[in-house]
């Protein structure tokens, strides 16, 4: 089977003032469909940068990143947007829900940009909210939801377009440990349903939910262990 993600000697260099910061200093890794991967590392290790690259929010300074057998560097802005829309679902530490839109509307956003007709959108939104156990709170705004409920809404948004991979950046970082555990249950459930998940975390016990842990240090892969 073809690799879903193929990263070869990828570097990302930021220019901060007169200095060059090597956020990623030559990373190579591959990932198959239906894997559940955790990326760990101290702050400044480059895990967020790697996340942004994998999520097609950013492009590498050098090296090759093939997503679904396509070289990301060669894609236009519109094509990157399309990949983010159809192939990638983001879950953020701070949820990043639109405050003035209710849960259903937030979940609907990727479908709107995908150009899916209204009736289909409504059905898919319902299914996604159902899947994360938030169906009854569909008409509530983020401010009327608890932290755990917000993150469920965000996960529903990430799931709704049936992406190839879900990228979760510290998804439990803003939650208490009990709620965090509940959210991890949700991830396990959606992994069980056949989804591919990449989790960025610095919590060992969160990482242990995954099937493979990659540790980064100073922009390099320190270890890559299947659990």
């Amino acid at each position: 089977m073809a690799e879903l993600i193929e990263i070869k000697d990828v570097k990302k260099i930021y220019h901060v003032g007169a200095e060059d910061v090597h956020a990623l200093d030559g990373i190579t890794l591959t990932m198959k469909k239906n894997e559940y991967l955790a990326i760990m590392g101290p702050s400044g290790s480059g895990k967020s940068t790697l996340m942004n690259l994998i999520g097609c929010l950013d492009t590498p300074t050098s090296g090759s990143y093939r997503f679904n057998d396509r070289e990301v560097r060669d894609l236009s802005d519109d094509e990157l947007a399309r990949i983010r829309n159809k192939e990638i679902g983001f879950v953020f530490q701070t949820f990043n829900l639109l405050p003035r839109a209710d849960a259903a509307h937030n979940v609907e956003l990727p479908l709107i940009y995908a150009g899916i007709p209204r009736a289909d959108r409504r059905r898919k939104v319902e299914q996604a909210l159902e899947a994360v156990g938030l169906a009854e709170r569909a008409r509530h705004r983020p401010s009327e939801l608890s932290g755990g409920q917000r993150q469920r809404a965000a996960i529903a948004r990430a799931l709704v377009n049936e992406p190839s991979v879900i990228l979760a950046d510290e998804p439990t970082g803003n939650l208490d440990s009990k709620t965090g555990e509940e959210i991890m249950q949700v991830f396990e459930k959606i992994h069980g349903a056949g989804n591919t998940i990449i989790l960025v975390t610095h919590e060992e016990y969160i990482a242990r939910h995954s099937g493979r842990i990659i540790r980064l240090r100073d922009g390099l892969v320190e270890s890559d262990v299947s659990v």
Partner: peptide
Amino acid sequence: TREIGVRMAVGARRKD
């Protein structure tokens, strides 16, 4: 700004 980032992350093109 944040909203714009979110929209782009979920697939809004620049023209959207």
